[in-house]
């Protein structure tokens, strides 16, 4: 037989803790309507759903919440919050659950990508020299094999370029030929642009890992490079 929980044995320490960091999260306002759950593709995975997760938070089931692998199945897409009549910030709750895990217990793949990004400026861990070699190599091949683009220009860290690309590092690393089409479009519209080589990976696994320090470091380094070294006016997200 299932033993009934004794609510008086629970305190809501975790809820208080998260609420103090995001006072606008509105956890206490949940109407238990289930709209979040009805529209969430992660519902039922590991027997969990957003409404249940929030009930557990409000009941003070801190251990169960913090141990649930569901925090890594939810993608923090925000559909629950957008549909919620009380605008409860479940994505930020998930982020804070992730942040409550010991760093070395968080998923290895995400942690590894975050560490690589801090170390080498992109989640794939590619050294700057290899990145520059790849873009020069792909650009040379296009110039040589596609006559219409024999004057294609691709630069890295060109100071004063109007635009700088913030590109997913998987493109140059796992499918470098996918760089060409975007370059050719930029060439056709005569855009004034360059690739940055500091924190050039557009992805951000430290954010997914809920590594505040790493996330901040990546952003600060990136902003400094664009603002003080390259002096670009526009950062273009390629996705």
């Amino acid at each position: 037989m299932i033993e009934a929980m004794k609510l008086e044995e629970f305190t809501c320490d975790f809820k208080e803790d998260v609420s103090s960091r995001i006072p606008e999260a509105n956890f206490d306002l949940c109407l238990t309507c289930g709209t979040c759950t009805g529209g969430c593709p992660a519902s039922e995975q590991y027997g969990m759903d957003p409404r249940k997760f929030l009930r557990m938070l409000l009941l003070g089931m801190d251990d169960e919440i913090r141990k649930s692998p569901w925090a890594w199945v939810c993608t923090m897409c925000g559909r629950c919050m957008s549909a919620c009549p009380m605008k409860i910030n479940i994505p930020k709750l998930i982020y804070n659950v992730r942040a409550s895990w010991d760093r070395d217990k968080r998923p290895k793949g995400i942690r590894g990508s975050c560490d690589q990004h801090i170390k080498s400026g992109n989640a794939m861990g590619v050294p700057k020299e290899d990145f520059v070699f790849t873009i020069e190599d792909v650009a040379r091949e296009i110039r040589e094999t596609q006559p219409e683009f024999s004057d294609l220009e691709v630069t890295a860290d060109r100071v004063g370029a109007y635009m700088v690309l913030n590109q997913n590092s998987r493109e140059p690393v796992t499918e470098p030929d996918e760089l060409g089409p975007l370059w050719k479009i930029l060439h056709k519209v005569k855009a004034d642009w360059t690739h940055p080589t500091v924190m050039w990976g557009g992805e951000n696994y430290c954010m997914f890992l809920a590594d505040e320090e790493g996330w901040r470091y990546i952003m600060e380094e990136f902003v400094y490079h664009i603002e003080h070294n390259l002096k670009c006016k526009v950062v273009v997200n390629t996705e």
Partner: peptide, 12 residues
């Protein structure tokens, strides 16, 4: 799509 939030590297 289910690939966001690090899910593609998250192991589940």
């Amino acid at each position: 799509c289910g690939g966001g939030g690090g899910a593609l590297q998250g192991g589940h």
